[in-house]
Nucleic acid binder design. Structure first.
Ligand SMILES: [Zn+2]
Ligand SMILES: [Zn+2]
Ligand SMILES: [Zn+2]
Ligand SMILES: [Zn+2]
Lengths: 144, 144
DNA sequence: GGGCGAATGTTACTTTATAACATCAGTAGC
DNA sequence: GCTACTGATGTTATAAAGTAACATTCGCCC
């Protein structure tokens, strides 16, 4: 899916969910899309400032929070960053793999494999939310 | 295991691993133990300052990093916090469950259930490190 | 008791995130 | 049209989290 299609799909996605991908939110999403992999909030802020002059942290954080809320981005706690989700349409549960060496991230689907964890949580009287796991390790390139 | 036994075991644990639970590190560990569940670095810093006058952030961060390194604490990225691990002796992989409502955390063992995730990661040419998952959801008390 | 490495102290700063309040834009009802 | 409301954005200020860099101290070996 190219960038334009992605944005269009994202807009429709928000619409269906009863909210709006406003110009600002769209701009922030575009800025995130331009980066490979994880982006930091303050990087987005800097980019935004380049495009529209002044902008303050809350502007960016609010937009990012919205995008995460809508499932368009995932937050990567381990890196204080954000990644684009490119299959926000489907109800997915995924695992975000963060390479300890190069910092690259990838997202893999994991619905089936999560069943085991859900069982463990159940046994502990805990109800897991739908969510994205973040795990660390070594990517193919760094494993050598 | 009571606090004294825990500290003694922790000391032995470090010894076996070829490093030392110094007075400062021990004091920080004690401060973490005094709290239920997750503690923040700056909370520990404040506590430490109460006990010994001045102390600066690096003092606490260094001690916490050491304790995490030794497996005595786990870092909870989602909360920028730390929890005591009370089975640091065994080679364990665990899942830390964070309640979205009350913020309480619990740690459950999950070695078997992780096998499925490991398979998924393998399929993505990614080697998972030994690690602790953090997942969110609702604890028993908040589920009602 | 001099030299070495690990640990801790100290200063200053960076990065990340939010609270609180002001303003603006769209829109439903009059 | 005007008003009142709601959601979004702007603005200011500050809180919270984390680290770099260098100084000092401590324990230990020779
Ligand atoms: Zn996703
Ligand atoms: Zn890598
Ligand atoms: Zn543990
Ligand atoms: Zn709870």
């Amino acid at each position: 899916m190219n960038r334009t299609d992605y944005l269009q799909a994202a807009e429709a996605h928000c619409e269906r969910r009863g909210c709006k991908l406003t110009a600002l939110r769209r701009q922030v999403l575009e800025l995130v899309l331009r980066h490979e992999g994880v982006v930091k909030a303050y990087q987005v802020l800097a980019d935004l400032q380049k495009e529209r002059g002044i902008a303050a942290p809350p502007t960016v954080y609010r937009a990012l929070d919205f995008l995460v809320e809508q499932g368009l981005l995932h937050r990567v706690d381990a890196l204080n960053g954000f990644v684009v989700c490119d299959h926000f349409e489907c109800q997915h549960e995924s695992m975000i793999l963060v390479c300890e060496t190069c910092g690259k991230v990838q997202e893999v689907d994991v619905i089936a494999a999560l069943a085991g964890l859900r069982d463990v949580a159940d046994a502990a009287d805990f109800t897991l939310s739908r969510q994205n796991l973040t795990l660390t390790g070594l990517c193919k390139a760094c494993r050598i």
